[in-house]
Design a protein around this nucleic acid. Structure first.
Length: 279
DNA sequence: ATGGGTACCTGTCTGC
DNA sequence: TGCAGACAGGTACCCA
């Protein structure tokens, strides 16, 4: 479900409500990808100071509990493949997929995740401990000023894997998942099988522009909803209406009418137009 | 160092 | 209708 736009839409829909909320209870359901990493009781009484995002990770910064020498710290959360967050004023009985609840004085933050690839991990800081390790190797943020075609070109020039696979790896640029990798390469007119090292500076410029553009539009549209994405208020996204190639195998390319092709790269499906996208 | 494959887990859809 | 198999938006880890 969640790529960068979905995570960002989730963050935006939550931030006003969770900022300042005081944690009053923690409920853990079935195990997620990793254990929480702290006794749940140690979270009680802390307030959420801020909610930020790094790639597809969310960071709930918490204040230190008075008289507690454990310091500030926070919770690093990932929605995995099927996770979503909701915030409701009234607690409802947890369903079979609700694996983490944070009860606060403002309402209940709930992580619903059928596949349980998601995670909530305690860390002393975003650059320390478990969080630091998880965030360490991440690439540049595509919606920040530092993301340019020149930077993309520099980071890709010595890599020989296919550009689609490199975009998914997240060590060059973060937040581009399987949907937006296909979409961005379609917009930029680049064949997903092209080796990174063969991309010219000009094509990297076009690719950076395509990534920035498609992610920005997806955030504005409220996140993609190719399955069942909902933001924390239950509003659904609308990006599927404008998918150019994703999930459109056999359907005509909107630009040239050639049938969209599906191939598999690194065990993931890739959709592209062999006419419009060149090596 | 790089890149490929595997693993985690469960729901949904397709075809026999 | 039942069942097997493919597939699903992510990413850490292991190995060549």
């Amino acid at each position: 479900m969640p790529e960068l736009p979905e995570v960002e839409v989730t963050r935006l829909s939550l931030i006003e409500r969770v900022r300042g909320a005081r944690i009053e209870g923690v409920r853990i359901g079935k195990p997620l990808r990793w254990p929480l990493g702290c006794p749940p009781e140690s979270l009680l009484g802390r307030r959420v100071l801020d909610l930020t995002r790094r790639g597809k990770y969310l960071w709930f910064a918490l204040d230190p509990r008075s008289g507690d020498d454990a310091g500030a710290g926070g919770l690093l959360m990932h929605l995995g493949m099927s996770g979503s967050l909701s915030f409701s004023a009234q607690a409802t009985p947890p369903g079979p997929w609700d694996h983490f609840d944070l009860s606060t004085d403002r309402g209940v933050l709930r992580l619903t995740d059928p596949r349980r690839f998601g995670a909530v991990v305690w860390s002393c800081g975003p650059h320390e401990g478990a969080a630091g390790k998880l965030l360490a190797g991440l690439g540049v943020e595509p919606l920040e000023a530092g993301f340019t075609g020149a930077l993309l070109h520099e980071r890709l020039r010595r890599r020989r894997l296919a550009i689609k696979t490199a975009l998914l790896a997240g060590d060059v640029v973060v937040g581009v998942g399987n949907i937006y990798a296909s979409e961005a390469l379609f917009i930029a007119g680049i064949d997903p099988r092209t080796r990174c090292s063969r991309l010219s500076a000009a094509r990297c410029e076009r690719l950076a522009e395509a990534i920035r553009g498609v992610l920005t539009r997806a955030v504005q549209a409220g996140g993609s909803t190719l399955r069942d994405f909902r933001d924390a208020h239950g509003a659904s996204g609308a990006f599927q209406l404008e998918a150019g190639v994703y999930g459109r195998e056999g359907l005509p390319c909107g630009r040239c009418a050639a049938p969209v092709r599906r191939i598999v790269q690194a065990q993931r499906s890739t959709w592209f137009c062999a006419q419009c996208q060149r090596r």
